[in-house]
Computed example of a mutant assay.
Amino acid sequence: MALSVPIDTREITITPVFKHVTVEDVPASEREGRQVMKTLEVVEVRFAGSKLYSPVFPIDAFWKRDGHKIMTYAERWADQYRDFLSGNEQKAAGTPLEMLKSYGVTDSQLSLCRALKIYSIEALDNLEGPNLKSLQMNANPLKEMARRFMADRNTGAKASDEIELLKAEIERLKQALPVNDPTSAEIAAAIQAADDEFERLSDDELKSLIKDRTGSAPRGTPSRQFLLNAVRELQGAA
């Protein structure tokens, strides 16, 4: 299996996206008796697995106090902010989700992850609670793929030249972050498309999924609808 180089995962489920927004300058509009607009530099903070919550802050807004110094959001993500100022593409930290191809990830599952702001394998591996459940039926399969990838990476011993090749492949696979979040309708469509893949599984494959989650396969000859409903309930309870 493909391995990669470990990274700092302390904030891996949080992705900043710097952008320009145009808003009304209300005091200036009131003074001049006409609408006056101004352009601001802001950062949109995206949380992996969060469907619609992405707060936006001015880049010079207060983030935290470090001793006597006030740190801004631009300082919090200084490298990403420099890329933004330089006109470079903003990319998420971590290992691209495409590296899970050999672990069985599908195109619809990749689209689902991106729709839910999950941009890396490390972010997927660190996903917990309600944000993990947002993946619905795909929560357990995707989480297991990420777990296996991380286990293989952490226990494998690779030669330095192979590591360099893998690092180059990771850089090639990295994609620019979308400037705008998907709409609720687009998120719902991505979830439905990924869930529909369970419809393509055979009865035996569905039984195997149920056995993996419960420790025993369904007895007798249950209907296909029973199997599908059981899998949906189990995956949704991730």
Rank of each mutant, 00 (worst) to 15 (best):
D203T: 08
P222Y: 02
A48M: 12
R219I: 08
L166K: 00
K133F: 05
G104W: 00
E44N: 12
D161W: 10
A28R: 11
A189V: 06
A139G: 12
E30M: 15
E24G: 01
L85Y: 04
N180D: 14
Q109T: 06
D212H: 15
L206E: 06
L127W: 00
G156T: 10
S111R: 10
L40Q: 10
G49Y: 05
L142T: 08
A193Y: 04
N131H: 06
Q90I: 11
E199C: 05
I7N: 03
E199I: 08
E122M: 04
F18W: 11
R34K: 15
I70Q: 15
A185F: 13
R31A: 15
D83R: 12
P178Y: 08
V179L: 14
Y81S: 01
E186P: 10
K207T: 03
E11Q: 13
A48K: 02
G49H: 04
A139I: 07
S202E: 13
H68Q: 11
L135K: 00
D152K: 01
E162R: 14
P58M: 12
T155H: 12
T95R: 03
L142D: 02
K51F: 02
I14L: 11
D79R: 10
T39H: 00
A189E: 15
F57V: 07
V45H: 05
S208Q: 14
E89N: 10
K101F: 06
N140I: 04
F149A: 04
A146T: 09
G33A: 04
T95H: 08
K117A: 10
L3W: 10
T214S: 06
E11L: 13
S120L: 12
G87E: 06
D212I: 09
V5P: 00
K211Y: 15
L52G: 09
G236H: 02
M71V: 14
D79C: 06
R200G: 13
V26W: 07
A151G: 07
G67R: 07
G94H: 02
D212M: 13
G129A: 06
P27Q: 10
R172H: 13
T95G: 07
A48H: 03
L201I: 02
E122P: 06
G94W: 02
E98R: 02
A115L: 08
Q235P: 11
S108Q: 09
Y103H: 09
L135A: 01
D203Q: 08
M99K: 07
K167V: 12
P96W: 06
M145G: 00
S160W: 03
K117G: 02
S102P: 04
E233S: 13
Q235N: 15
P96Y: 06
V5K: 07
A238R: 08
I170W: 01
V105G: 01
D195C: 09
L166N: 02
L166D: 04
D212V: 07
V45G: 01
N138L: 01
T155V: 08
L132M: 09
R114H: 03
F47H: 12
M71Y: 04
D152L: 03
L142P: 05
Y81R: 00
D107V: 10
M71H: 03
D66P: 02
A217F: 09
I170V: 15
R34T: 13
N138F: 00
R31K: 14
K38M: 15
I70A: 14
A194R: 00
R31M: 15
I170N: 03
A61Y: 15
A123F: 14
E98S: 03
